[in-house]
């Protein structure tokens, strides 16, 4: 009963130094179930971000299939992928990627407007849940790195996603805050019923997961 199913997924890039394209992702098969929380571990350059971008529909695969909640992302056009991403996936980036001119609340609400629709009460609830009740109207520059990360978590959950993708989500936090951030992400994913696929090379982060898989085990290009 897989929420996410990858089969024969391949992605390569043209390299300026080599005549042949560089294969970055080569995943014969991979599954993630609803509510499952899995950490993928691999060094820099092992294709972690590319794999998440493929799952999110931000990148288009060279070959293979990506099935998410019954939808074949590799068979639909870009606009449809954008819509599915906004409705089924929440994405937490290493650099948070908050919009600087917008308040914490506006960052969460904007994600809703491009997704399932604006719900101010739920946006406030999410920010309260991540401990930012008194910081809703602050802009990213007025928040600490840890607070910005929590806004990013709230924003990722804005559209009741089925899957949260987290790309080195604690890369900009110190170890103490990193552990707390991972615990928060895992907890709110459980509360919202979203599965979590996290990639990291940080042992502190990986230690907080029951399920950790080396990327090389699923991605032959990284093996």
């Amino acid at each position: 009963m897989a929420l996410l199913h990858l089969s024969g997924l391949m992605k390569s890039y043209a390299s300026p130094d080599e005549p042949a394209r560089t294969l970055v992702v080569d995943v014969p098969s991979f599954e993630l179930h609803a509510g499952q929380q899995l950490a993928l571990h691999g060094p820099s350059g092992s294709g972690k971000t590319t794999l998440l971008n493929l799952v999110a529909g931000i990148l288009r695969a060279d070959a293979g299939e990506i099935w998410l909640a019954g939808h074949n992302l590799t068979a639909v056009g870009e606009s449809r992928r954008d819509r599915l991403r906004s409705e089924l996936i929440g994405y937490i980036f290493q650099t948070f990627n908050l919009l600087q001119g917008y308040t914490a609340l506006e960052n969460v609400e904007l994600a809703m407007r491009f997704g399932r629709g604006h719900d101010a009460a739920f946006a406030k609830h999410l920010l309260e849940r991540v401990g930012l009740a008194s910081r809703m109207n602050h802009r990213p520059r007025q928040l600490s790195a840890g607070q910005q990360q929590r806004v990013a978590v709230a924003r990722a959950l804005a559209n009741h996603p089925r899957l949260i993708l987290a790309d080195e989500p604690t890369g900009n936090l110190d170890p103490a805050h990193a552990a707390a951030a991972i615990d928060l992400i895992r907890q709110v994913c459980r509360e919202q019923g979203a599965a979590l696929l996290l990639v990291s090379h940080d042992p502190t982060v990986l230690a907080r997961f029951e399920e950790v898989v080396h990327l090389g085990a699923i991605n032959r290009a990284a093996a």
């Binding site: 897989a2 179930h33 998410l68």
Partner: peptide
């Protein structure tokens, strides 16, 4: 096209497609 993409042969998902 979207509904067609949920044709037979798709791996069984954890729940119904809830695209709004």
């Amino acid at each position: 096209q979207e509904t067609g993409n949920q044709a037979a042969g798709a791996p069984a998902s954890a729940g119904p497609a809830e695209v709004g």
